[in-house]
Design a protein around this nucleic acid. Structure first.
Lengths: 348, 348
DNA sequence: ATGAAAGCGCTAACAC
DNA sequence: GTGTTAGCGCTTTCAT
């Protein structure tokens, strides 16, 4: 563990003042001879400028934070990977935090006042008034992944859940499904509410909807087993995410229902799991990676121009059709864009 | 975006010196009246101490870094979640970085000289002499996930790959497998080399081994299709990770081989994917979460005592037996501990 | 118990 | 082009 050299030592060794050393190192006006001497001294001493001191002086940390409720969730990981890439490309380091519950999220946003990061991408579990207030109060810009009232005055990036689910319902109708059921997650979550509402809008108020205890395969299996054993068995199921859909496939298999012939199944999120499962799962791609990328870009843009108008970006959805809903009627398009995506983004 | 208050303002408002304000806030010796006045002033101003200034003064950032080659890989994510939990519990923030290739890793370790973190958990793709040197030179402690020469003098946390693979081979023998093949990933990677070597050690030099182009299901499928179509078809396959194993299952299914009767399949890593796949995948659990936790703990311990002896921890492996290798002969134990785990950790 | 002052390492006026 | 100086916000001697 080597001892670190300071700019003072570099200056001494080069025989110049500290200011000259700083200038030479940062490429400001200085004589060629000075630059060389300083560079040499720095090299010999293995000098690397201290990030903390620099931050204190400059008023910026060159760090950005990504806060999310459950860092184990593949969708958030996908976003994180995209964010990490954009952010590091711009010379920033990425801080990752688990918010846990809703209260934790508010604390986290207020903690930004400590000034350990120049901005934050926040993926909140729920949007409370308290959270909106905290975000508005934040001393550094926050970009929210999800929707927020425009009055909050923050940049947001949201998926086009409604468009994506409409796409899935249309697809199921097209392959001849007569009775489409929706397997939702808990209705008191944001995705549960939004996706459930979108399904009703797309499939009509009479389409059957059941809610699983949480967004897991086990919960999906439990609720699907009942659904598929009961009267008026559906011939297609749209699940609120891929895990639930896998649970549905398990139940169908267990009950001896063949997929897709007797039961077509579609998920949401288009995860790796769905692609590798057999039968491969048709799924609504909500563009997690793209959302992460856009959020990071919006944050960087706002850092450059704090006064620009807040944007509400909606990332378009797509449908990846695979074996779990692929019957002869439908051509094997691997990808379809949402027709009614409401991308409200402005310039760029 | 509120303006942030400084300790100077708090001191003024409370009618005391800056030093007294600092002492009162940090719980050092000060009169009760002073404490109250300062607390009140701080509350009224919404004062929160600046992390950067504090870091500069204290010489510690309260940040730890986690560096990994591919942040999208579920195994690394599992480790990250565990690290995040330990680290944040101890009051540290977690910085996450993608190293990319091997050269990037060395740069990253040297970049620690910037002093933006108090320590690092490093999960290197390959261990080169250059990297060992960089780690040894690091101004802050580095804990390596993987093995390193003891002479490097750093704390390491490694999986017991050999023990885990021996467990899998023994299990396959126990269920009656006569001819066990190993589907490896690229042999020029660390896991490829270690796991391949462990298999040969456990199954003997005559056991068939093939190498896939990378650690993906597609690569596993390709190589397994050839393996299972050729002469001397194996009756069991151990794959170097779960993705490869899924590829093997795809190939078996495609060739009309029933699992586990005609072909038993076992993976390594015990991922969520394997648990949800049908047939559910038997897999060697290398304790990713536990490794992440131990690495973070070792880092914290070293921060507390920089002079303690470097430790080489080996986390025990276990076998999760599931349907893909579950034949009647074997009782349905869900979990078995490695008998020859070589846990070399010292105290604690 | 408290205040004055030094200083962490760096950058940016400012004057020469 | 370069040196002197101030100062980012905080903690911590050192006197008192």
């Amino acid at each position: 563990m080597a001892q670190r050299a300071t700019i003072t030592q570099v200056a001494q060794r080069a025989g110049v003042s500290i200011a000259s050393a700083s200038r030479a190192l940062n490429g400001l006006t200085s004589a060629t001879a000075t630059v060389e001497a300083v560079r040499a001294a720095a090299r010999e001493l293995g000098y690397i400028p201290d990030a903390t001191a620099r931050s204190l002086k400059l008023g910026r940390t060159l760090q950005l934070a990504y806060a999310v409720a459950d860092i184990g969730n593949p969708v958030y990981v996908e976003m994180m990977a995209a964010i990490q890439e954009v952010v590091s490309g711009a010379g920033y380091r990425l801080l990752v935090t688990n918010t846990g519950d809703a209260a934790g999220t508010v604390d986290l946003v207020t903690s930004l006042q400590r000034g350990y990061a120049d901005g934050m991408v926040l993926s909140p579990l729920r949007v409370t008034d308290e959270l909106v207030a905290a975000v508005a109060q934040s001393p550094v810009p926050v970009v929210v992944l999800g929707r927020m009232p425009e009055s909050a005055g923050v940049d947001t990036v949201a998926p086009d859940s409604a468009g994506g689910i409409a796409l899935a319902v249309a697809h199921l109708h097209a392959i001849g499904a007569r009775r489409i059921a929706f397997v939702n997650g808990p209705a008191d979550t944001i995705p549960g509410r939004v996706r459930g509402g979108a399904f009703v809008a797309a499939a009509g108020p009479d389409a059957p909807v059941v809610s699983a205890a949480d967004f897991t395969a086990a919960a999906g299996h439990a609720v699907a087993h009942a659904l598929l054993s009961g009267p008026d068995r559906p011939d297609a199921v749209l699940a609120a995410n891929d895990l639930l859909a896998i649970g549905v496939l398990h139940a169908a298999d267990q009950l001896g229902l063949s997929t897709p012939d007797q039961l077509a199944v579609v998920g949401v999120d288009d995860t790796e799991l769905g692609k590798l499962f057999r039968p491969a799962l048709t799924s609504v791609d909500l563009g997690a990676s793209e959302r992460g990328r856009r959020a990071a870009e919006l944050l960087l843009e706002r850092l450059n121009d704090p006064h620009k108008k807040p944007q509400q970006v909606v990332v378009p959805a797509a449908l990846s059709v695979r074996r779990s809903s692929d019957v002869k009627g439908e051509p094997m398009a691997d990808d379809a864009r949402a027709p009614h995506q409401q991308d409200q983004e402005g310039e760029r």
